[in-house]
Amino acid sequence: MIKKWVSTILLIILCYVLQTTLFKHLQLAGVVPNMLIILTASVSYVRGQKDGLITGFMCGLLSDMLFGSVIGLHALLYMFIGYITGYTYNVYLRNYFFILLIIGVSDLFYGFIYYVFEFLTRGRFHILYYLRNIILPETIYTMLAAVVFFKLFLLVNRLVVPGDVEEAL
C-alpha cells in the first residue's frame, strides 16, 4: 500500500519534470505531450477508479501549484478524468489500442474543457483554430508518447502491485 503510493508520487513528479524540461526540446508542431494525462488514465485503467481519481487529484494539484493561476481547477479536471476513465477497469476489452484510445479521448476532453474555462471565458471564440493548432496535435503526440510510457508504467506497476498484473493486460 505504502510502496504503491510512494511510487505513484515519484512517477507524478518524474512525469511533471520531464514534461516541463526534456520534452520542451522534443517539441513537435509546437506542442508537448501531456504526461500527467497519460499517467492518470494509465493508473485508472490498470488499478481502477479509486486509485485513478486520487492520482488525478495529485497530478492536478501539482500542476496548479506550479503554473496555475487558480489552485484547484486542474485538480478537479484531472480528478474527474481519473474517475471517468476508471470505468474502463470493469470493461473486459483489454488490449493496447484500447488504452491508447482512452488516453487520446482523455486528452481531447482535457483540451476542450481547458479551452472553455481559460479562453472562451475571455472571449476567444476561434475554437477551430485552437482545435487544429493545439488540442489535436497535443492529443496525437500524447498518444504517441503513451505507446512507450504505458509499457514502462506496467513494468513499475508489476513491481509494486504484484497481484494486479494478470488483470491488467
Binding site: 479509486k50 486520487i54 489552485i71 484547484g72 485538480a75 478537479l76
Partner: peptide
C-alpha cells in the same frame, strides 16, 4: 472507503481551494 465518497470529498476540497485562491 467507497469511491463516490472520495470523489465527493476531493471535489469539495477543490472547490474550497478555487474559492480561497
Amino acid at each position: 472507503i467507497p469511491v463516490k465518497a472520495i470523489l465527493v470529498a476531493c471535489t469539495a476540497v477543490c472547490l474550497v481551494l478555487i474559492v480561497v485562491s
